[in-house]
Computed example of a mutant assay.
Amino acid sequence: MDKCTCTTHKGFDELGAFVDSLPNKKGELITVLHKAQSIFGYLPKEVQEFVADRLDLPLAKVYGVVKFYSFFSMTPKGRYPISVCMGTACYVRGAEEVLTELTRQLGISVGGVSEDGKFSLDTLRCVGACGLAPVVIVGEKVYGRVEPGKIAGILAEYAE
């Protein structure tokens, strides 16, 4: 996934074309932010400014939506973002130990990105898969009933 590095990034053309294709721009902020994050990988200030300008919205409104929804990120993520559910069921069934093992094996803390840019690590409140607790999500793939001993095998799936 491309990462935004400057305002001349080709993704701005793609995002602009997407916004222009919308039949009605009113009420489409979240849709446009999802598209922007899929293009850039995250939503830095220059992307938020672009969205605000194209939708004729105050930057503060765009920023407020980005901050409110945990799906949106203002910092770069790894190529394979990892999220550990820390909801009650996952926590009770060992999510903290799973998270500790991930930080040990990746050499990063929550909110960090591995040196090679391959992985980033975050936590979530609840993913709604309590029957599979504890749950780890890598990209869009969900792993259930994860134990610390399974972490190496999960990470190995993303070896190149």
Rank of each mutant, 00 (worst) to 15 (best):
59 L>N: 01
128 G>H: 04
58 P>D: 15
137 I>E: 12
143 Y>R: 02
2 D>W: 02
78 G>S: 08
129 A>M: 10
53 D>L: 11
87 G>A: 13
42 Y>I: 04
159 A>H: 12
151 I>V: 15
113 V>E: 05
126 C>Y: 08
150 K>V: 04
84 V>N: 07
122 D>F: 00
1 M>Q: 09
62 V>E: 07
111 G>A: 05
135 V>W: 01
62 V>W: 02
65 V>T: 15
19 V>C: 06
149 G>D: 11
121 L>K: 03
39 I>V: 15
96 E>N: 09
145 R>I: 02
154 I>F: 04
45 K>E: 15
153 G>L: 06
126 C>T: 06
130 C>E: 05
88 T>G: 13
139 G>Y: 05
57 L>W: 03
129 A>I: 01
150 K>N: 15
44 P>F: 08
33 L>V: 09
73 S>R: 15
69 Y>G: 00
23 P>T: 05
97 E>H: 06
134 P>H: 07
44 P>D: 11
61 K>I: 09
35 K>S: 10
24 N>A: 11
123 T>E: 09
139 G>V: 09
97 E>F: 01
75 T>H: 12
140 E>T: 14
72 F>R: 10
89 A>Q: 12
8 T>P: 00
83 S>W: 01
3 K>Y: 01
51 V>D: 03
29 L>H: 03
25 K>G: 15
41 G>D: 11
145 R>A: 11
52 A>G: 14
24 N>F: 00
56 D>A: 13
85 C>H: 06
125 R>W: 04
95 A>M: 09
137 I>Q: 13
82 I>F: 04
145 R>G: 12
147 E>Q: 14
138 V>H: 05
80 Y>K: 08
144 G>S: 09
92 V>I: 15
37 Q>P: 07
11 G>Q: 08
111 G>L: 04
86 M>F: 06
45 K>A: 12
139 G>D: 13
40 F>I: 09
133 A>S: 14
116 D>I: 04
21 S>I: 03
141 K>H: 13
158 Y>E: 12
94 G>W: 01
79 R>Q: 13
156 A>S: 15
66 V>K: 08
21 S>T: 05
151 I>S: 07
131 G>W: 00
145 R>W: 04
6 C>Y: 02
22 L>F: 00
35 K>L: 06
148 P>A: 12
116 D>C: 03
44 P>E: 10
26 K>Q: 13
94 G>M: 07
114 S>W: 00
16 G>A: 09
77 K>H: 08
86 M>L: 15
160 E>I: 10
4 C>P: 00
37 Q>N: 10
119 F>L: 02
46 E>I: 14
12 F>Q: 09
30 I>Q: 12
119 F>T: 02
84 V>E: 08
87 G>V: 13
157 E>Q: 14
136 V>T: 09
134 P>C: 09
20 D>P: 00
134 P>K: 07
93 R>E: 14
101 E>M: 10
62 V>H: 04
113 V>S: 03
98 V>G: 06
90 C>T: 10
78 G>W: 03
85 C>I: 11
42 Y>F: 15
84 V>L: 10
147 E>H: 11
77 K>W: 00
143 Y>G: 07
76 P>I: 07
60 A>V: 14
41 G>W: 08
100 T>A: 14
35 K>C: 12
3 K>Q: 07
120 S>E: 01
133 A>Y: 03
160 E>C: 05
